[in-house]
Design a protein around this nucleic acid. Sequence first.
DNA 1: GCCAACGTTGGC
DNA 2: GCCAACGTTGGC
Length: 158
Amino acid sequence: MARRYWLMKSEPSAFSFNDLLDSPRNTDHWDGVRNYQARNSMQEMTKGDRVLFYHSSTAPPHVVGIAEIAREAYPDHTAFDEKSKYYDSKSSPDNPRWFMVDVRAIKKLPTIVPLADLKANPKLAKMLVVQKGQRLSVQPVTAAEYTEVLRMAGASAR
DNA sequence: GCCAACGTTGGC
DNA sequence: GCCAACGTTGGC
């Protein structure tokens, strides 16, 4: 199957791209997604898909790095943990409602790409992250959009 | 800190 | 099934 491209948001104060780089094998699981559309996107992900790692709720919001899907969707165990803030009584190991993937950091971008720059680029007019009011934490990106963001960051596509 | 946009919940 | 109330996201 052809490689696909995604954008995943994280608040750097909670989990930053550096945190992912500092993780064992540059890899960690992406838990806590509790939105059906975002979950559905995660279930479509295949190993090797590329991810634009986006820092939200920071000034300025920006794309900071490139990651890849290291493990395809599996049940999000934090939903089963009553002590977790992501606990959901309607999700159980027998019938999981929420899923997560493993993500591996590939590299930091030479320069970050601020949201304002994405918005100012006509080639990215249809990109979900620039749409007003959109707040999906996991979203699909086209190959052309992905390549353009890398070009803006001074990075080569690979 | 404000608040618009959006998704979810629950009463009816 | 409708929709008001509520909680959350996330840019500014």
